[in-house]
Computed example of a mutant assay.
Amino acid sequence: MKLLHTSDWHLGRSFHGVGMLDAQRDFIEQLVAFVRERSVDVVLIAGDVYDRALPALDVVKLLDDALVRITDAGAKVVLTSGNHDSAIRLGFASRLLERGGVHLRTRVEDLDSPVLFPLEGEAGETAMLAVYGIPYLEPRLVADKLGVEAASHFEVTQAAVRLIREDLSRRKETGPVHSVVLAHTFASGGITSDSERDVSIGGLGAVPLDLFDGFGYTALGHLHGRQELAGHVRYSGSPLAYSFSESKHRKGAWLVEVGPGGVGNIEEVLWQAPRELAVLRGKLAELLESTEHAWAESAYCQVTLTDPVRPAQAMEQVRVRFPDTIVLSFDPEGTDGKSKASYSARISEAEDDLGVCCGFLDHVRGRPADESEQQALLTALEAVRLEGAEL
């Protein structure tokens, strides 16, 4: 049996103001073609299917078309919700969709209810494959349901894994069962990028890798870089780059083969990017004249100019050679850049929502937020995030 591990589609997302629906359609074309070509049996989507809890109608239609085409190509789908999704909305009609081969795991109540697939070997040996889904678990909303007191990502994920292990143990009493777990979380050791929304604001949301020990394969979602953490614990990453920090990523997925003897070969799958990303830095004249940057003329560009004096009509001049420059910032040589940087450039460098808020406060009044002000902003951001998680 062949499983295709994907995650973080983020349907409906824009790239620095540039719409990405066409690029996302192109990715789905590649995925469906791969499913047909390689006879993939199950497509796994480990959360963040949508970019927003309330996706636009054309975005919902895109997912609908994708699921129909994947199942028409002969594959089943197992899908969990991420921190960008509304678990309730994404999980609508789950029992009906299951009849068509689309299995949604968005509820705490379904943690120990796996999707079961028979495994048959060439010599006649048989086993079962149990695919479990751990959706993004907002600690304060699910702690009571999971019977834990500490509202932390570690505690609720540990409780979810415990339920899965108990169910798996019972199933193994009647015959060989192999396990695959989908989980949308931040696992220790993962390499982050700028385009992920932190699963916790003001605290560590990471869970230890050994939490997933003993499972045949753990298909992680949340981090956008495809990476192997330990053994069979992997992130597929996002299928497209959603920030310039991902310009060096090789976007793709993992093709996982499972037989009666367990997980076998794991193969790297690569998706073709619709546009390259270029991160350019230097003085304006050098960037406009150097043949070294010829390849970037057709790419989406992030340009940082280091001229001691900001050039007049800088964006217009840059776009003469690099017409798809969508981020322009200034870092004059010989300064720390902060005093001369524009507000938009300063905000573009913010690492998270708190950084954006503090950058705005610094801009309008000329001094950074102190500790008490940062805490007040964290409290407000946490309240907004919790409200969004309940949608």
Rank of each mutant, 00 (worst) to 15 (best):
D26M: 06
E29A: 07
V32D: 03
A46V: 10
V60C: 05
A66T: 08
L67Q: 15
A73H: 09
V77Y: 10
G91S: 05
R95Y: 06
L104A: 11
L104V: 06
D110S: 11
P114T: 05
F117L: 15
F117Y: 14
E122L: 07
E122H: 07
G124A: 06
M128Q: 15
K145D: 07
H153I: 01
H153V: 01
H153G: 03
F154H: 10
R171M: 13
V180C: 05
T185M: 07
V199G: 01
V207N: 08
P208G: 08
G216I: 00
A219H: 07
L223S: 03
H224W: 07
R226V: 04
Q227G: 06
Q227W: 10
E228V: 14
H232Y: 01
F244E: 05
E246P: 11
S247T: 10
G264E: 05
P274G: 08
E276C: 02
A278C: 13
G282M: 13
K283D: 13
A285Q: 14
A294T: 12
A296C: 11
A296L: 12
P311Y: 04
A314F: 06
R319D: 04
R321M: 13
F322V: 12
V327I: 10
F330G: 11
S339K: 15
Y343Q: 08
A345Y: 04
E349T: 09
D352S: 01
R367W: 01
D370K: 10
R385Y: 12
L386K: 10
